[in-house]
Design a binder for these strands. Structure first.
Lengths: 318, 318
DNA sequence: ATCATAGATTGAAACGTTTCAATAACATAC
DNA sequence: GTATGTTATTGAAACGTTTCAATCTATGAT
């Protein structure tokens, strides 16, 4: 492996000259710069990242930590982040589990975006003492070293619920996802907020786990009980889809017998019959904004907190 | 950020002693080692990866390059790789696109596993001149610096086809995925191999793109033609599922009117009615073997080429 | 006491860059 | 021909580790 030294020797100049030339420093006249670049190229010289990182005390690399490669990895989000980082000459790496911890500990990256639910708030706070900046997604955490960026679930669900109310529904059930999670609680809060403003409160509550099967089970529960809601607001699309499917299999009409709504606007929701009213987040541009924020933080520029804004997608399910 | 120097100063000893102590070198007695570790800990000292990498000329990190975070990223494979790497004290990072190129160029990692179809053979060969070792997945490439590990599609499909033949099917159609890809060609070759041994040749051929919708379209083609196959061997499960679905919607029985087989054994294939006969690769353990091989290569130990062996999963679709 | 030996500790070089500050080379003007 | 300024080039320090080889210290044997 040739080093900068070899290039200097062959170009018959000093190491500093080579370094400046290769980094397009204008103190080196274009002619010599080109000559040196040519030599470096011919030699197959590639600068050592380790040496540069050591000297410059940065790596131009950003880490995105995710829970699981199989899980609901919003690839649009990753694409958005990647895209924006690329435009700013950063490299993006993705990791899970113990690898994430290693990378964070050793300052192998300049900044991190964390969307890994397996990392506890505690370890996060611990890490943030020695490593910065960190952006945490879909979780809110009061630590001045950790920047959180969340989806404005509250507001979006508030608007959705108002729309539901405007259509005349009054016996409104809520289907929870996993309790205590940020997504579930904030969506439920927005739902309640709208209801309360109308002097109403939730008619019935069910608890699922954000998956389709859990929605199917809940639909059975609903069918088996005496009191019937006229509207079922779900914490996400997958559960809503499961509910609609089971309800339909049992001869119910949607809308008609029940209205149903979701959240997230997954692919399928558009194609299901009836198509599902939901809340859509443009995850690509959200990813871009996240990356942008991180870039600001890495340059220790100030940034203001932001939330992803959900767009109401009104369809035919209520 | 405290450095090893700070630890040495406070521990009132030399830098070398701290380094040896922290790396559990036995020349440092346990007592002092513990004392130093305690001090390092209290100080919040974390060694600089850049400095270590520079000195040791390695990074203890492995790169896995994938095509796309949304694509058919076999997360079991990644989990298998990650698991094995962890056992051997390596960190795994995942990347796509331009980030992969950056990482490879700058020798930020000690080895790479490439499963990115967007990287051309040409650039791969180029990179392999300066970077090693590289393992390439699901592609075969004759370059002595690149180690390829593939699934033994040929053999698995050969065995599957023999099983089909043993059931008496003779008018056998083949549904291609994307042509010219390693997976498609080697599966088709195995299929042909078995047929030829019985003095038969393929009855009909269709070309899809490995997706369910393409299978649905092909099913229509089949229904619309005059000559009818009695068996449809597909290059993967997703197309097989699409075909079965459309065939059933049109009142056909499977098996009965047609037999159908797949490849990959995706989750759904087990639950579909009828359940789909397919070939299963244990991707977790395959990932482990891949990682193992890479580890050997990184230690410049010799390894022998391997192929993943597929297991025939006989179910009810023919 | 003296010596050898093993154990504990350390100084210094090296890894390959970047970058400050100094020098060298060269015009230009007087 | 000297002074002045501009441009080009370079030496050397620094980044934070690891590790060789040398030194120092204590232990026990003679």
């Amino acid at each position: 492996m040739p080093t900068i030294k070899d290039v200097a020797r062959i170009a018959n100049c000093s190491i500093s000259t080579v370094s400046y030339a290769l980094n397009n420093d204008r103190r080196i006249p274009e002619k010599t710069a080109n000559r040196i670049k040519k030599i470096a190229d011919d030699l197959g010289y590639l600068p050592s990242a380790a040496a540069r990182n050591l000297k410059k005390q940065n790596t131009n690399t950003v880490l995105v930590a995710i829970s699981d490669f199989g899980g609901p990895v919003y690839h649009e989000l990753l694409d958005g982040i990647h895209h924006k980082l690329g435009k700013n000459k950063y490299t993006m790496i993705v990791s899970t589990g113990f690898s994430t911890e290693n990378l964070l500990k050793e300052k192998t990256v300049d900044g991190a975006i964390i969307s890994d639910i397996n990392i506890t708030n505690k370890t996060l706070k611990q890490v943030s003492k020695t490593f910065r900046p960190i952006i945490i997604l879909d979780r809110s955490l009061d630590d001045e070293n950790i920047f959180d960026m969340t989806i404005d679930n509250h507001n979006a669900m508030y608007r959705l619920t108002n729309d539901v109310l405007s259509k005349g529904y009054r016996k409104i059930a809520f289907v929870h996802g996993v309790k205590k999670t940020f997504d579930n609680e904030s969506r439920f809060a927005g739902f309640n907020h709208a209801l309360n403003e109308h002097g109403l409160s939730v008619y019935q509550e069910f608890v699922g786990n954000f998956t389709k099967p859990s929605g199917q089970k809940i639909a059975q529960e609903i069918l088996n009980q005496n009191e019937q809601p006229d509207m079922i607001v779900c914490a996400n699309d997958e559960m809503a889809l499961g509910i609609m499917e089971t309800l339909q299999i049992n001869g119910k009409n949607i809308p008609g017998d029940y209205g149903v709504s979701g959240f997230d606007d997954i692919e399928l929701s558009r194609y299901f019959k009836p198509s599902l009213t939901s809340v859509r987040i443009n995850r690509f541009s959200w990813g871009e904004r996240i990356a942008d924020t991180l870039i600001h933080l890495m340059k220790s520029e100030s940034t203001s907190a932001q939330k992803a804004h959900g767009e109401l997608i009104i369809r035919e399910s209520y």
